[in-house]
Amino acid sequence: MPIVEAIIISVIAASTPLLLAAAGELVVERSGVLNLGVEGMMIMGAACGFAGAYLSGSTFVGALCGIAAGMALSFVFAVLTLGLAVNQVAAGLALTILGVGLSGLIGAGFVGQKITPAPHLYIPGLSDIPVVGKMLFAQDGFVYFSVVLVIGIWWFLYRTRGGLILRAVGDSHTSAHALGYPVLKIRLMAVLFGGGCAGLAGAFLPLAYTPFFIPGMTAGRGWIALALVVFSSWLPGRLVAGAYLFGAVSILQLHAQALGLGIPSQLMTSLPYLATVIVLVLISRGRGSTGSVAPASLGVVFVPDR
């Protein structure tokens, strides 16, 4: 029993940064912008988050620093793609390269330092429930926040006028413009929100997952978050399922390696990626029946005609 408990707790920890980053990117893509710079914004969030927490001694301040760093980097992206109408794919890739380099520079002085990891918050009453209580209701603040965030995003997208406008802008920016909606302003908000989420996801790693910073510690999680958005077919509910599926596979393969099944470790390490590819294929095959398709304006540069 304790091993199952440990596995579940570690699955949750592995899934949370993916969920945070992907949730932000989902909002960005719903507005019709493809920001491939998630990896760069995450690693900046990790470096600045760790620096903030180390200098202030507070996890909360660290998290805020991570969010700010992600937003700042996404603002650069917004200036390029929305203000100057630069190709979004190129700008996003450049953003990742910039983020990886800059985070190494900022984090160089902090490598080898240690901080106290984010405290676990026990929810009174619920965390005392036998078995489940300790697994689900004794997590750190990031985990609770990620769940609240996704529910909030779902509620915003499908239950508020603001969400309807955001989806409309992603579906047809020319129509939205013709009706008088400020397309670029709405997209700027979405991009900044996505940057903040990616920064927070990055900050989670040194603040809660491992209590230290190493350059490149996001290890491709930003790319996985991007894939998860497609995987979820831009639906928040499926995003949770996808993030946890991926988290579970990546933890289980570690345990499978520990059991010594005689399967090469490289193959086991590739399992999560293989699972993603398979699910992506299955989803795109069933696309016609579910009708869930990408936002129609995704990645298309918009220049208002006056």
Binding site: L164, A168, D171, S172, S175, A178, G180, Y181
Partner: peptide, 30 residues
């Protein structure tokens, strides 16, 4: 356009200003 609408000017566009993946009601609401 919002200003024009508030005064009572409405327009039906040649190239429809509709959103394909939204419902009829959502399109009208927008």
């Amino acid at each position: 356009p919002a200003d024009a609408r508030s005064r009572g000017i409405a327009m039906v566009f040649q190239h429809f200003s509709l959103f394909d993946n939204l419902t009829v009601a959502e399109n009208v609401a927008l």
